[in-house]
Amino acid sequence: MDLALLLGIGVLTGVTTVLFGFGGGFVTVPVVMWVDAGLGPDAMRVATATSAVVMVVNAGFATAVTPRHVLDRLRGGGGLVPLLAAGASAGAFVALRAPSGPVRWAFVGYVAVTLADLLLRPGFLRPRAETTAGGPKPLPAWVGPPIGAVAAFLGVGGSVLTVPAMRRAGHTMRVATVLANPLTLAIALPATVVSLGGSAAPVTAHLPAHLVGTVDLRAAALLLLGALPVIAVLRRRPPRIADRTHAWAYAALLAAVIMAMALSG
């Protein structure tokens, strides 16, 4: 049952990587928590670390098959990418030592506040590209450390902050979600390195064979087995979705994640 669940969620992460720029974090954290519930309070820590590994591969592959002219839109952000990576390293390091219960509810609160912001504050559900003077703007470099730190600490990849920010800067949903993948890679790669080198204190004495540091390699492999073929197909033949419908679907997925995390344990 766990195998089928992880493969199915892997397919879903492939879809969310292409359509929403998520890379898998919001979808994989709840399911890995459920699969590794036997680890007790360490389940959240393992889930966030495993999520980072899945996001590295998903976001890296999605970035590699993205046309260069689309990726060129990230130019002009100064040192955004290295600052995202620096923040992610710090966030992942803190996550190794943070109590799992508060981290889990911080995850729920983070997504809930983001969803409320999308629904209540102008600029996300309605496109603004046509009203943005001078066209879409790059994200400023100073947002890198806080986005990287929060995203790595919670195992969410950062797209929940970068997609709305790029949307409000004048990008369409399609472009904002595509550009979220290389930014997710900048966050997830250093977070994965930190996670592979650390281990959750309560499980070090009896480390399960499928764990390396705080990463569940078995779960990560099954999730990627489901995700990568989907990313390849959808990048080659992306579905046509109306911009506003795309934005509402993004908000609806955040609502589903909140419910999943609230009900998982």
Rank of each mutant, 00 (worst) to 15 (best):
V143R: 05
V94W: 11
V194H: 08
G38V: 09
T28F: 05
S51C: 07
M173Q: 15
V156E: 06
G197H: 10
V70G: 00
I258Q: 03
G14C: 06
L217G: 09
V193F: 08
A251D: 02
A4T: 12
A219Y: 05
G60I: 03
N58V: 02
D36E: 15
L120T: 15
P208A: 11
P202S: 14
A220W: 02
A133T: 14
G24C: 08
A116F: 12
A59C: 12
S51W: 06
A220E: 03
A151S: 15
S51L: 05
V35Q: 13
M1Y: 13
H246A: 13
T177A: 14
W142G: 10
P30F: 08
V113D: 00
A92Y: 01
G213I: 04
V230W: 04
T204C: 02
L19Y: 07
G60R: 05
A37V: 11
R121A: 13
L80T: 08
L196S: 10
P146I: 02
R73V: 02
P82Q: 08
L217I: 14
V70N: 02
V160H: 06
W105P: 01
L118F: 08
G78K: 07
L12Q: 01
T162W: 09
T114K: 01
S159M: 04
D117V: 13
M33N: 09
V233Y: 12
I241W: 05
L74Y: 01
G91S: 07
M259N: 04
V29T: 14
L211I: 10
V160P: 00
L84K: 01
H210Y: 11
G78W: 03
A209G: 12
A129R: 15
T192C: 01
A176G: 06
A64V: 09
G78F: 02
G76A: 04
P190L: 11
P127G: 10
A85K: 00
R104V: 10
T132G: 05
A112Q: 02
A85N: 04
P30K: 09
L263N: 12
A116D: 00
A88S: 14
R218T: 14
L5I: 15
V94H: 07
R126M: 03
A260R: 15
M166A: 08
W142K: 08
A49P: 02
A247V: 03
G25E: 07
L96G: 14
M166K: 11
L185H: 01
A92T: 04
R128M: 10
T16G: 06
T28Q: 12
L96N: 14
P190F: 06
V15A: 11
M44V: 15
A186D: 00
L225W: 01
V11I: 15
L179Y: 10
L125K: 09
P99G: 13
A64Q: 07
L263K: 14
P145Y: 04
F93Y: 15
R97L: 12
L119Q: 06
P202H: 13
P102I: 08
G265T: 13
T28A: 13
L115V: 15
L217K: 09
